[in-house]
Design a protein around this nucleic acid. Structure first.
Lengths: 356, 356
DNA sequence: ACAGTTGCGTAGAACGTTGCACAAACCTTT
DNA sequence: AAAGGTTTGTGCAACGTTCTACGCAACTGT
């Protein structure tokens, strides 16, 4: 009843084989050659104004749209692939939005794929995009190692967001996470805190200097602590609400609990806040909490999380511009650094009596 | 130094013309015809096991990957396009994640484009995807009118999420928003509330029954209010945090302010909470607040918003499955309805003294 | 009036696949 | 052993573009 090699022709609704309007249709309609139409579309040189007019009219009348797949076989596909790790990570979404807004003006269209945390899936997602013949790639916080990234960058124009250590074959846009973490520690120390815990995320075996943001944040935290003669104290449950929650519970139940917790990402800081409530601690009186990223939720008055801003939308826009440059021929690598900014809100305050 | 048709060979960094491995390379390597390789790839019938083995070996050795653009010209591109309106809308992201998870198992790859609220940009995004020869389309809460959607669905397999009223040429997956809104009103009335305000979003001129979720929610709210003999009271600032904030301030400053506010989306409810704080009202004692969508933020203990859940991930998965069916030949439209569930949390409580 | 230049338009060969139509080889049956 | 059937493998024409190479016409300046 289903395929039957068709013999008894279809189920009477005969899928109308609506042919797409092709460049040839336009050429016929305008009474010119296919090449001429192609020229007009790409607005290449050597086209008279009247030719341009004639062809444009036909294009409009017929509602012609160039077929990206066919295009990609010889020229450009005008598609930019954006790979993000987690769509649920608000900061990554801000970046992607920034990219889209910047690209919107030109002829390029960005498509996003959510790769997930596993290295294997990230690899697959990138390949999927390359198979689809994207003209360029923007990776947000990939977990792949440096050599692998260089090798991809060597064959496709690429910019990577949130990876430190520079690169030869691709551009990077990265927040100065080391400094940003320092800002938070400075802030907390100025408020009189000494037992400041940091919540981080597994390094995934990546080696310095080619590390992702969170490792740089951790390094920055440790450097700052040492600068003040304080002992670093790091837990690595990962950047999720639940991770932050678990880590905070564990720390708060210690004999000498921290008086301040600096989570390497806002999302984890939210879990810390929940843990504090679980333990009946008042924020910020009994415990100071800070995050990193300045995501939307942190700005809500109900949350009001002290954090570090790295202007996601701008970062995305810069990445997009760099990629376009690269597609248009630049080959020297450019590495852009974003300066972080501390946002003091309601979850941090003067350290009071030391609890025991 | 590279290709030499360039006369004065390139700028010394000689873009390495790394040719992609093609099906022809595989054929040569395996000593068989191109068609044979193609058969193996698509695993069409009429291939001996040894042929299969031979070709697979070559594919692996050479690291061959089929070129999606070229594929798209004759067969399928194995790409599903997902159009969402706002990446910053958490519920839409949940849906997209659900779609991705479902598709991951098969050969299809989903690509996402964020279209924005304007009808024009949504149209452009859809076109961009169709140009890129996607095999199917999933639209999340599009603002386009019914006729336009039918026309797109008639030429590309498509499923639309969050649109009521059914359709002929595409499938839909939609929450029973009418009922969901009723659940909220029931809940608030049971708590003794009578002045219950609803925050909605502009209809964009769409006509019943082909309306987006928020209109169905409003209808459901009004129907429920009338059922209880209460007067509906709707403000339409749009579904943003700031929209909810503005509307709530306006309502709370009235002579007879509402004792409960039901926002048509959690994101707007968050704004209502802020407005309540601005006016020094305690939640839920002085004002009850409810939302719709059960987004991540609402679940945070700090927020703890009473809301309606419609299981985004499942919805997305269902949509993906329907689309695959459709791509594989089904033509009768299927319309799936999700049953909503009230989630009672900390922002709603018994109505107390009537403020004036 | 002439060769030289410039500018506009076109033919046609790619690009990497798919899948139809067919040939070749191998089984069955009788 | 012949006829027929069934597999299995191949050649080749699409598919919708781009872009190089080239022809032609209309200008230049002498």
């Amino acid at each position: 009843m289903t395929d039957m090699t068709e013999v008894h022709s279809g189920t009477e609704h005969s899928a109308p084989p609506i042919r797409r309007v092709t460049i040839e249709d336009v050429a016929r309609d305008a009474n010119v050659s296919v090449s001429a139409v192609s020229k007009v579309i790409r607005d290449a040189s050597g086209v008279s104004p009247q030719m341009k007019r004639k062809v444009s009219t036909s294009i409009d009348r017929l509602g012609y749209r160039p077929h990206a797949g066919a295009r990609g076989m010889r020229g450009r596909s005008f598609t930019i692939g954006v790979v993000l790790v987690q769509m649920s990570a608000p900061f990554q979404v801000e970046l992607a939005t920034g990219i889209g807004t910047e690209l919107e003006q030109g002829p390029y269209q960005d498509v996003i794929v959510a790769a997930g945390l596993s290295r294997e899936r990230q690899r697959r997602s990138i390949e999927a995009l390359v198979d689809r013949q994207v003209d360029g790639l923007i990776l947000i916080g990939p977990a792949l190692d440096h050599a692998e990234l260089e090798s991809i960058g060597a064959r496709t124009p690429m910019v990577v967001i949130a990876r430190h250590g520079g690169a030869d074959h691709f551009d990077t846009v990265v927040d100065d996470d080391h400094q940003g973490a320092g800002l938070v520690v400075d802030h907390l120390v100025n408020l009189g805190h000494e037992r400041i815990m940091h919540i981080s995320h597994s390094s995934g075996g990546l080696q310095r200097p080619h590390v992702p943001s969170h490792i740089a944040r951790r390094d920055g935290y440790e450097a700052a602590m040492k600068r003040y003669g304080l002992t670093p104290d790091v837990l690595v449950p990962g950047f999720t609400e639940e991770g932050g929650h678990q880590a905070a519970l564990e720390a708060l139940d210690r004999r000498y609990a921290p008086t301040a917790i600096f989570a390497g990402a806002d999302i984890a800081a939210l879990g810390v806040l929940r843990a504090a409530e679980d333990r009946g601690l008042r924020i910020p009186d009994d415990l100071s909490v800070a995050g990193y990223d300045n995501i939307f939720t942190s700005r809500l008055q109900r949350v009001s999380l002290t954090t570090v801003d790295q202007s996601g939308a701008d970062t995305g826009a810069i990445a997009a511009r760099l990629l376009l440059d690269r597609i248009n021929g630049r080959t020297e690598a450019v590495h852009h650094v974003i300066v972080p900014r501390l946002i003091e809100r309601g979850t941090t305050a003067q350290a009071t009596a030391v609890r025991t």
